[in-house]
Design a protein around this nucleic acid. Structure first.
Lengths: 206, 206
DNA sequence: GCCGTTTGTGACCATTTGGTCAACAGTTTG
DNA sequence: CAAACTGTTGACCAAATGGTCACAAACGGC
């Protein structure tokens, strides 16, 4: 019966072996998009199916779902950030508007990506431990540099939060309420920045 | 043994009967704060415990958890809205800033309440059917009146989205990332409006 | 080819969770 | 008082779900 062996092979096509480090990267990458989409409640079996492995493999590489989710947050809220971006808002010899645009063009690749925004919201809503990391990133590495570019004192920090809030919301309209934002992401963010700078300059003649 | 009867009563203290309409209100009110806190995944047993009833009572009044959640969204995204608010941004004889402040002081009681913001985010993130209702509320009853007050054409609508985004974000910082916003809610929103108007007036000399 | 190590696999487990139900107990009505 | 109705209760069910494990297959050094 030559057909029998083939049939068995088709039913259980043994997946090729992959070294641990590489598999961990595969899992982590898939988990980023998966948890960003489904939230922390996303089922491990679905994630595994998206990768094409039985879900028990996940537990060979990550002790628990919590740990995997924490690793995803670590990746998104810490590892992807580039400290040199923080100098952009104060680059010498460039107009304020242009400096802010450059900052968000770079940093926005990370902090305005739909995955980032959605994950940030999930973490915030669930009051997840990783929220502390997120808040630190926002305050120290985003808002603080912006504030330094906008002036000094509490007024500048206020203005920085406002700017970032406006940009963040522009991103959110696309990452969360998808049905309601037919615009081009980059363009919307750019418009938000230009509008805000025009307003801020008028309001804060410092 | 006089104690026995008392002990039984303490173990199974029969809850007083409540007419159906009243019980439904109790459940709906509790469900609003409960789902706003826990999201659509909140367990019916926990909700029931918060009310002080066995969870089977929920299913006598609502066919399923989905229906209950939909009822909560209906309550939040439709029933609580007062159409007369929509006239406030164009009240005659009042400065623009004051008109906007009045609008948000009224409408903000609903659409900037932490429960509303959190529910809106949960619905958006989960791509829940009620998201359509939410988007309609935002576009037709919030942004459209604002835009009408700010001018005409796409620029006014753009400005309206920006204003609302800024205010929304101010509310969100308190309703979602709780650790990061030590300010007084009403004051933060007011500051956001004043700042935005100052900026918008400077940028849009229409 | 042999053997220890690493990786893939599916069955299995305990708990959780949305939902159901039959029995029981106040209320109302005749 | 009895019957009909309405509301309450806890046990129960099936499916889902995070997590475990024993075993088989591939790999690598000898």
């Amino acid at each position: 019966m030559p057909g029998t062996a083939d049939l068995t092979a088709e039913i259980a096509p043994r997946r090729p072996r992959v070294p641990a480090a590489e598999r961990e990267r595969m899992i982590l990458d898939a988990a980023v998009t998966f948890f960003a989409e489904q939230g922390p409640e996303g089922q491990t079996r679905l994630l595994a199916r998206a990768i094409g492995i039985p879900h028990s493999v996940l537990y060979r590489h990550f002790p628990s779902k919590e740990d995997l989710f924490a690793a995803v947050c670590e990746e998104m809220f810490r590892r992807r950030w580039q400290p040199e971006w923080e100098a952009l808002p104060r680059a010498p010899g460039v107009s304020l508007e242009e400096r802010l645009l450059r900052f968000y063009r770079q940093a926005g690749q990370v902090i305005l990506a739909p995955e980032f925004l959605r994950l940030a919201l999930f973490v915030g809503l669930a009051d997840h431990p990783s929220g502390a990391v997120l808040r630190a990133l926002m305050r120290q590495h985003v808002v603080a540099p912006l504030a330094a570019a906008l002036g000094t004192g509490p007024a500048a920090e206020e203005a920085a939060w406002n700017l970032h809030g406006r940009v963040f919301y522009a991103g959110m309209r696309m990452a969360v309420w998808r049905g309601g934002a037919p615009r081009d992401p980059a363009q919307a963010v750019e418009a938000a920045i230009r509008g805000h700078v025009a307003g801020a300059l008028a309001a804060l003649p410092a």
